[in-house]
Design a protein around this nucleic acid. Structure first.
Lengths: 204, 204
DNA sequence: CGACTTCTGGATCGAGTAGTTCAGATCTCA
DNA sequence: TGAGATCTGAACTACTCGATCCAGAAGTCG
């Protein structure tokens, strides 16, 4: 992008990745500029602001990176090549696996990094809330699709069943933060899927 | 308690309640001394420290108050007068109801107020983590009790089934924060209980 | 009353916060 | 080579953070 002028002395993409992990681990307000700059290799305040604009702008960029990488685990919810039940199960299992894999913070950045905090972060809370809302709607759509294609009976409490999976998806972040392993989370998911199977018309 | 000396100019218990609500809403690091003192009626910094010692000490006190009041909704998990299944269901439904009742913040203070944040709050994170761990063990105990009394077969994945209810219990806090109503949460709980009923030996 | 105890108003502290400024270094390109 | 663009090091700003200090107010008790 930059064609002329003194070249940047650090890898911007790597720095954003570092920021992503820090915000993911500690939340937006739990990370200081000092922490970010130090983790980025001790870059100066001027370099930081020249490269990223502000702490909030960096967070937005870090969240985008997260959504485009780790966050893709919930894409299964919108995968039309899968039956509705499998969309939900795959999203849950991939989330559980990703959120307990070493090499990055546990839990989900969308769920944890900007949910509680001071009133000054209302805008960022809205950002992550929008993402959670999108998953919520996708889960509801899985249930309604299953009713439409005859997998689930029409009398099913769509909102309630969807909220159960949604609640578990969100809860997995907290379980992962509390140190639960991927195996345990997978066991939880297996049991949650029973609630679907009990309602299903065709035996599985 | 104080017998002689100048009397306190504010209601200490009421102030702790105010602090409880603030920490509950914004988390430990999301509330400033200024906010606390202002909400307490504009008391001075000296009054604050004379009464509470420190921000951290006040948080610990606020958490105790929470556990002794709102937090009692999960006591059902240890109510030996209830069958194991009902212990879990009652705890879930009472939590959902409490966490969506107007007049105080939504969600659960134990789950939300000291989970993410900077490294300086490790001690407080441990405080709430201990409480979550206690609920976790109580849920596991409900499942093992049900196996022992013959309600559930011995082959049940104890840890997985317990983790499902645990995950939902934690997830309810996030759903409540995202604006889900008590009715929706109750629907989610009804569906989660189906997972238990599908495993149960005696039909319900 | 006077000694004693406790709390308050107000100023203040040092550390930490996000962010700015600017001279000079380092590059591209004509 | 030199003009123009971009980035960096270092000092610095304005503000907020949690916490402290002290003189004096306001109570109890002998």
């Amino acid at each position: 992008m930059a064609r002329t002028g003194r070249p940047r002395s650090f890898d911007r993409d790597a720095a954003v990745t570092i920021a992503t992990h820090l915000f993911w681990q500690h939340g937006y307000e739990g990370v200081s500029l000092d922490q970010l700059r130090t983790a980025m290799g001790g870059i100066s305040s001027a370099s930081f602001y020249a490269a990223f604009g502000s702490k909030e702008a960096l967070y937005r960029e870090a969240l985008s990176v997260y959504l485009a990488t780790y966050g893709r685990v919930t894409d299964a919810l919108r995968d039309q090549t899968l039956p509705p039940r499998e969309r939900i199960e795959h999203a849950l299992r991939r989330s559980a696996m990703m959120q307990t894999t070493p090499g990055h913070p546990t839990g989900c950045m969308v769920t944890l990094s900007a949910t509680i905090g001071s009133d000054q972060t209302t805008a960022l809370k809205g950002l992550t809330a929008t993402e959670r809302q999108a998953n919520r709607q996708a889960i509801v759509l899985c249930v309604t699709s299953a009713i439409e294609n005859g997998t689930l009976p029409a009398e099913v409490d769509t909102v309630g069943l969807a909220a159960m999976f949604d609640g578990l998806l969100l809860g997995i972040s907290l379980l992962a933060r509390d140190g639960m392993t991927g195996d345990v989370l997978n066991g939880a998911i297996s049991n949650a899927m029973r609630a679907w199977d009990m309602l299903a018309i065709a035996p599985r």
